[in-house]
Every structure is written in C-alpha cells, then in structure tokens.
Design a protein around this nucleic acid. Structure first.
Lengths: 212, 212
DNA sequence: TAGATTGTTAATCGATTAACAATC
DNA sequence: TAGATTGTTAATCGATTAACAATC
C-alpha cells in the first residue's frame, strides 16, 4: 500500500508536503492539536482539496469537522518522506557553497548527514570545516566504499562537475545532488537531482512579472 | 507574442531550459555550431519532442536536418528567461548559507546582483562579506526604497523568517526568495519562491529508491 | 440535530507524447 | 534525391479541481 503510493506521488506534491510540515510544526509549538485542510490551504494559497489529496498519500487520516491531528500528520509526513531513514552522504567541492552545506544543521532533521568533504585544494584538505573532515579527492572511492555511502553532493565549478560525477559513480554513489550549473550526463540508474539557481531565479522573476 | 508565452510556460519547462542552456554553452566552447533536439534529449533522458516544445517557447527556430543554431538558441533562452534584464536584490541573514550566496558569482550571469546584506548580529554589521556591505536590519527599508530594490532573499532561521518577510514587504520588496524552511504567509501579489532543502532531499531519495 | 469537514469518485484542465506534413 | 529533423496539430496521460456522500 505505502509502496504503491511511493510510485504514484507527483513531484509537485513532494514540494508541497514540506510546507504543510513546516506550518504544522509551528502550530504544534503553539500547542494546537488539530488543523483543517481549509486552514492550511488558506495560508499557502492552495485549495483545501489539494491539501487533503496531498496529505492522503502519506496515509494520515483526518476527522470530519475537526481536521487533522497535528502530531499524527507530522509523524506520517516524516515517515512518508523518508526522513526517518538515516542516510549518509559526502560532499565534493568545499568552496563557499560547499562549506555552507557542510554546516547546514537542518539536514539531520531529514535523516541526512554529510560525513566528509572532499576537495582538490591542498590548503584545505586535512582541515575541518564545521566539524567535518576534508579529504583529498583521491580518497573518495575508498571512503565511500568502506562506509557504503550512496549519496554525493557536487559543489564544484561547472567545468569539473561531469568528471566529479563520474568519479562518484565509480565510488559506488547512487544518488547525486548537483549544485553546479551543469547538465550532467549520467546512466539512467543513478538518481540525479539538479539544484539550479538559474531556474529558481527565473521562476521567481516570472512570478513577479505576472503579478504586475 | 512573447508576452503571451510568458503566461503559458510551465514550471517544469522553466526548470528544463537552463539544462539545455548549460549543455549548449559547453558545445559552444567546443566550437560546435548546431545541435539537434535528439542529441539534447539523449543527454538528459528526455524526448526530442519535449526539447523542441520547450525550445519553441523561447522563439528560437531550428532548421530541418540540421538542428538548432547554438548561438541563436543561447541568445533566445537568455532573453526569454529574463537573464538580460538587470535586477538588484538584498539578502537578510548573513550566516553560512547567506554568506555563500553573497559570494555566488554566477548570479551575474542571470542578470541578478545582491547589492547588500543585512543582519541583526552587531559583530558582522558594518563589515563586508565577499565585497558586499552588511547593514543592521533597521536600515533595510530606507535602502530598499532609495534604490528601488524589489527582490529579497531570506536566509535567517525559520522562526524569524515570517517577521523578516513582513519587513521586506514594508520595504517595498515584491519578490521573495526564501531559503528558510518555513511556510511564509504573504499577500497574493508578492511573488514567492521557496527553496526547500527538505523537498530537494526527498525528491532525490525517492528517485533513488525507485531505481532499486 | 445542524453543519463543517473529510475522503473518494468523476470531470476538467494542462502537460507530455504521438503522428505526420513540411523542410532542408 | 533520400532521409533526418523541425514544428504543429491531435491524442494521451496525469494532476488538479469539482461534486458529494459519509462522518463526527
């Protein structure tokens, strides 16, 4: 049942669920116990039907006239999103953005931890950034295989991104989160999520233009 | 014609266009002049039809049997995406992530520039980060109004995000790029783009799980 | 009870894919 | 010329929205 749903969930739903989650977290802190789809929808300019549909994939059940139990809903969202499964990852490219991600404390709330950083710059290899050790890139394969690490984050300049991706794949990485503005060419069985500042900026600008 | 299309373009298309762009940039560097939709589609596991449909919204015309002129296509994408229009923005919350964004050089390729940072921490106000001056948050309204700044980036902790958003709106900001994991409640006429690490991570994990 | 809210089934809307004539 | 590729129109697919019975 749950496994069937995993296949069926749409990307837009996966983007909305965290918003409901953040909002319900705040309500929980305010000691609120229940919230209706109407209330949630109002806050984020969506329809109540959409909120109910999204929440229903997580398996949470609401109560007519009352709404959703916030504690339950938070639990179910965490479970469905896979935030309860612990996952380790490594990060390559410890420049400004890479360093920021190494220190991003919120990852642990989503079951994710970056266990090490890699870089080519000998000035930073051997040091620690935000408590994470930084290794030369030659050590990646050994470390990833030894610790069975499957998630890799790319924060290198675009022109090195493809090479780093290939090296990650050789190291046994199965899921790549790419922050470099580069179209990676990788096999079909490797999961790729592209974080694209260009796309984000453009979506923001287009929405802005539409409003005027 | 162009203005009609602006309304019609889908978010998924806006996310794909930068990928074609990055890829064509590389080809251009390699002195390649033309590329077919088939070739592009192959590289990113899409269909050629989808690539042609996406490209057609930008107004670029291909040539049968030859494909798309890369120089033309890059030009048209830049134009359509609004990367040629110069836009200034400010950033609030100069912690790790905020600092990284202040130093993110790629923004200028998309016509965007962060002109100043704001923070509550007196240890950093008055200093510069990556060449950008950091001001106390009280100065935001005056500066934004004076320089007609319409774009604001939020990099503060979640619990302050709502307050910062409201302050931005008071300062005349019309488009908010929110990196805090918080569901902002803002008027309908303010553009909002939520950058959600939780959503990104989850999409990556789900793709990964599906592959196995 | 009355009425607000859920959850599900059906209808609509929009994006992707297929088909194919036009073109180089 | 033959055949690869574009661009457009039509068909399909999937996500959103509407309708409404069930429920508390």
């Amino acid at each position: 049942m749950v496994d069937e749903n995993i296949e069926k969930v749409s990307i837009p739903s996966l983007r909305r669920l965290p918003l409901y989650y953040h909002y319900m977290k705040i309500l929980k802190k305010r000691k609120v116990d229940y919230v209706s789809s109407t209330k949630i929808a109002e806050k984020m300019n969506l329809t109540p039907i959409q909120v109910r549909k999204d929440l229903s994939i997580t398996g949470v059940k609401g109560r007519a006239r009352v709404g959703f139990n916030i504690k339950d809903a938070l639990e179910k969202i965490e479970e469905f999103m896979g935030w309860k499964d612990k996952k380790d990852g490594i990060l390559v490219g410890c420049g400004d953005l890479g360093s920021a991600l190494l220190g991003y404390n919120n990852f642990k709330n989503y079951g994710f931890e970056i266990v090490a950083g890699f870089d080519v710059d000998e000035k930073i290899t051997g040091t620690e950034i935000h408590g994470k050790r930084i290794f030369p890139i030659d050590r990646m394969e050994n470390l990833c295989k030894r610790l069975h690490i499957k998630v890799g984050i790319i924060c290198v300049p675009s022109k090195s991104a493809q090479k780093v991706a290939e090296r990650m794949i050789d190291s046994g990485i199965e899921a790549i989160w790419n922050f470099a503005p580069a179209a990676l060419e990788i096999p079909n069985d490797i999961a790729l999520h592209q974080e694209d500042m260009a796309a984000s900026l453009t979506i923001l600008f287009k929405k802005h233009r539409k409003n005027r």
